[in-house]
């Protein structure tokens, strides 16, 4: 670029911006196609339904899918009531600043590194509560981690419910609880769905918080107190600790990425529905 020629500078800048964008796209497409190509060779019906053999070099990921599902189930089962209650309390029952402390603490919680959640989960759930390396303690650790996302999304859903409903309900002398159950929660339902999906998305992608809470065992879990290996840990273990495990690591990664894409699509679908339903009301 030559400084004294503004037109040349503009052209140079355009070129640079396009090159960067193309470069980034190329690298990311490389990554995605690599996962799809390599993973595609590993994934088939048997891969999804069989148990891993030879430390995962052979066989499939069936018990790992089950463990992942159970960890997610524990995570959402615990964080949803807690998050819903907190979001409702923060938006509907304490509009003043008196509960800024809770908000602030949740915002900080959202930024805590996942490995720190892992440390905490290990110290509290696995040791103090005596749950050991188990699906339960992994799920509980993840519940703490997704709570801020969940609460934030539900709050956004609740706040966006038109003010007129609350006004009309108050003018009719209706109780806040009745208004909440009949009017506000149904109207905020898509927002709540988005929150749950974002929470699942974050939880399913998580590895570091689970290494020393839910553990490595790749057998089919028989109870929530069993250790269970989730998808992301399976990828990590195959890639790092098992020579020649890349193929099946890619296969597992493909399954994980597809799950995430499904979740993302659902999120934007619900968000779009939420936007439309709001427009219809206004």
């Amino acid at each position: 670029m030559v400084r004294r020629h503004p037109a040349g500078k503009e052209q140079g800048a355009t070129l640079m911006v396009w090159l960067v964008a193309l470069g980034i796209t190329a690298v990311f497409l490389w990554l995605l196609s690599d996962v799809i190509w390599q993973g595609g060779q590993a994934v088939n019906g048997a891969f999804l339904t069989q148990a891993p053999a030879k430390a995962g070099l052979e066989g499939g990921i069936a018990p790992i899918l089950v463990s992942t599902g159970l960890v997610l189930g524990v995570c959402i089962g615990v964080s949803l009531p807690l998050g819903l209650g907190t979001a409702v309390f923060l938006t509907e029952f304490s509009p003043q600043r008196s509960h800024r402390v809770i908000r602030l603490s949740l915002d900080i919680l959202a930024g805590v590194p996942s490995i720190v959640f892992g440390l905490f989960g290990n110290a509290f759930f696995s040791r103090v509560l005596g749950l050991g390396f188990s699906i339960l303690s992994g799920g509980l650790t993840l519940a703490c981690m997704v709570l801020p996302i969940l609460i934030r999304s539900i709050q956004v859903g609740l706040v966006n419910v038109p003010r007129e409903y609350r006004q009309a309900a108050a003018a009719l002398g209706l109780s806040r609880l009745g208004t909440l159950k009949t009017l506000i929660l149904p109207a905020a339902l898509p927002g709540i769905a988005v929150g749950i999906l974002l929470g699942i998305g974050r939880a399913i992608a998580e590895t570091a918080a689970l290494i020393f809470t839910s553990g490595y065992v790749d057998r089919m879990p028989t109870s929530l107190l069993d250790s269970g290996r989730v998808l992301s840990i399976h990828i990590f273990d195959l890639a790092m600790n098992i020579p020649g495990g890349e193929q099946n690591a890619y296969g597992t990664a493909l399954v994980l990425v597809i799950l995430l894409i499904v979740i993302n699509t659902l999120v934007s679908w619900f968000a779009e529905r939420f936007r439309q339903s709001k427009l219809q009301i206004l």
Binding site: P81, L82, G83, G85, T86, V88, F89, L90, F93, S94, H99, V101, I102, S105, L106, I108, L109, V112, V116, F117, L119, F120, A123, F124, V128, C144, L147, I151
Partner: peptide
């Protein structure tokens, strides 16, 4: 609801405390 909210808010303290 207040108890639930306090639980959520206390998680950060719990984490800090354990660390």
């Amino acid at each position: 609801l207040r108890i639930l909210a306090l639980c959520s808010g206390a998680i950060l303290l719990l984490i800090l405390g354990f660390l």
